[in-house]
Design a protein around this nucleic acid. Structure first.
Lengths: 140, 140
DNA sequence: ATCCATGCAAAGTGTTTGCAGGTGG
DNA sequence: CCACCTGCAAACACTTTGCATGGAT
């Protein structure tokens, strides 16, 4: 919340009730709500709130580094015919995703904190970074 | 491809050109194409192919266990205000996602196969399984 | 010959954008 | 007071569905 106010001010962005409430709502829950869920909750405090304001605000905060998304953002669904247990390298610049295999990763033990949440049946590691093309020779 | 033919036959599902070509296309590439990308490629061999057939076929194959999706399927985007380095437990039944922390996971080394793909800057582990509620007391 | 699968077109979601009036700095 | 935000509504992209024809078994 501190961080939110500070970053908004730093970037010369106005601190509206909508923005503060939307961030407050998201920061106060641990269930990774959708835009619509945030909308419904905040609407109880700001009845005139519009759904598109929630989207605009969330994307703004993503640009500021205050918020992130679960899974790949804004992309169409992508499919995979590789059914073997595998892991992914994902380029944060161009979205490229490639499989790789690792017996070590396959056998990772779930920490206690995770076992408390449920019964783990599969480990899926995602390595995020820049692919050869994006970190490569040319301009970024 | 074998597996595809066999599973279709086992389930009494017709082996149409569309289905075989769509699977062949997806199995032949490692870049996790979207439905539209599959559509454009297969269209060169079956010009009358319709996009919705690609979708129907891909979902069918997911039900058969021939194909999977990258990221959570068919859900609206979900947001997260937790910017600390963390990992996720995801329930495959209800989609519940919760954060957990693990210093061990944070420090996982990227295997050679992954380093060959690009420069890794972050490790994000996803543990898939059933949450307490879904594996819990009640019916399946 | 039968029934399933396809193509077409239209509907359905979730998300984005243009604009006029309102609000924070 | 000025520029930026918001709400509204329409547009948009992606995915799904209903229906009649066409194809596989």
């Amino acid at each position: 919340m501190e961080r939110c106010r500070r970053l908004l001010k730093q970037h010369g962005i106005k601190q509206t009730q909508q923005r503060l409430q939307i961030f407050h709502e998201l920061a106060g829950r641990s269930d990774h709500p959708s835009a619509e869920e945030v909308y419904h909750s905040v609407r109880q405090r700001i009845p005139a709130l519009a759904l598109d304001t929630v989207y605009r605000t969330l994307w703004l905060m993503i640009d500021l580094g205050l918020v992130s998304t679960l899974g790949p953002s804004r992309e169409p669904m992508r499919f995979d015919a590789n059914m073997d247990l595998h892991h992914h390298f994902i380029c944060t610049a161009c979205g490229m995703a490639r499989d790789f295999y690792s017996a070590e990763y396959n056998q990772l033990a779930a920490p206690r904190a995770a076992r408390a949440l449920g019964q783990v049946s599969r480990v899926q590691v995602g390595l995020l970074g820049l692919c050869a093309k994006c970190s490569g020779p040319a301009d970024h």
